[in-house]
């Protein structure tokens, strides 16, 4: 079956096309999508290529950062202003994958991939959608709730420059690169010795990156001491059913979340 390619010059025209044709897919770097095309996936009849500068714009000078969805991992790594994203961008594949893999594609990558998306969820990042002028940006984790409906076209990711501590850790069987057993990202905002906001995001455990509500609740408005850390570790997987696949069992993933969360929080507490 032949697959057509539509080359468009604006994200809005691409968004219109994608919403009217369920077999059309937006092409980022193609590292995941072209695998499906090569395999003759009957669900894909059209690829949409977009040559719109909005997709490759980076505005990272101030507190409010916007990164076009077509920016690659290698391009992110060349921006010192985006240093807080580098640990996650660097662990996406090897150098050639990073030259191709886009931010937009990473948001839609299913487990065990989507490492950068995990960090973005922890940072409370939002996405601007194309073809929906006037609509408010959407929290990244809300994107993942839309299963069934056609995925919206992401124009850019908006992030507030993080205040406080940020930690990212990927655990994989293969080093220096490999699919995640568990990916963990933490953003802690503390004031006067108390945690104002804690966001703990997990990758690998569910099909898409998710927030650990249990860990966040356990840490809210507390001091980051041993007792708080133990509460966060105990509650981290509450309500989350870890997946079992060829890389790891659900049981092992749960253990790894707890081990690495305890280590990370202890380190963040200065211990």
């Amino acid at each position: 079956m032949t697959v057509q390619v539509s080359s468009l010059s604006t994200v809005d025209s691409a968004a219109r096309l994608l919403s009217s044709d369920k077999t059309a897919r937006m092409l980022g770097g193609g590292t995941l999508l072209m695998q499906r095309v090569n395999a003759g996936d009957p669900g894909i009849r059209k690829l949409v290529r977009v040559d719109d500068p909005a997709l490759t714009d980076i505005s990272a000078g101030g507190a409010n950062i916007s990164i076009g969805a077509g920016v690659t991992m290698s391009q992110l790594l060349m921006k010192p202003e985006l240093e807080f994203l580098h640990s996650a961008a660097r662990c996406v594949g090897g150098p050639a994958i990073r030259n191709m893999a886009t931010l937009g594609g990473n948001l839609f990558a299913r487990a065990p991939y989507g490492d950068l998306a995990v960090l973005l969820v922890a940072l409370g990042a939002e996405v601007s959608l194309a073809g929906q002028s006037g609509s408010r940006p959407v929290a990244i984790e809300r994107l993942f709730e839309r299963s069934g409906s056609a995925p919206p076209l992401v124009r850019a990711v908006n992030i507030r420059r993080p205040q406080g501590q940020v930690m990212f850790h990927k655990m994989s069987r293969m080093n220096p690169r490999g699919p995640a057993i568990v990916t963990l990202a933490i953003h802690l905002d503390q004031s006067a010795g108390r945690i104002r906001e804690a966001r703990v995001a997990l990758g690998g455990v569910a099909d898409r990156p998710c927030l650990s509500m249990g860990a966040a609740r356990a840490m809210g408005n507390s001091r980051l001491d041993d007792a708080t850390i133990e509460r966060a570790v105990t509650d981290a997987m509450r309500g989350i059913e870890p997946r079992t696949d060829a890389i790891a069992s659900g049981w092992y993933r749960e253990q790894m979340v707890q081990v690495h969360l305890r280590r990370a929080l202890t380190q963040m507490a200065g211990g």
Partner: peptide, 13 residues
């Protein structure tokens, strides 16, 4: 000048 995996690169690109 940048390495890519040609099997997942759309030739048109």
């Amino acid at each position: 000048g940048k390495t890519v995996l040609s099997c997942v690169t759309l030739a048109q690109n």
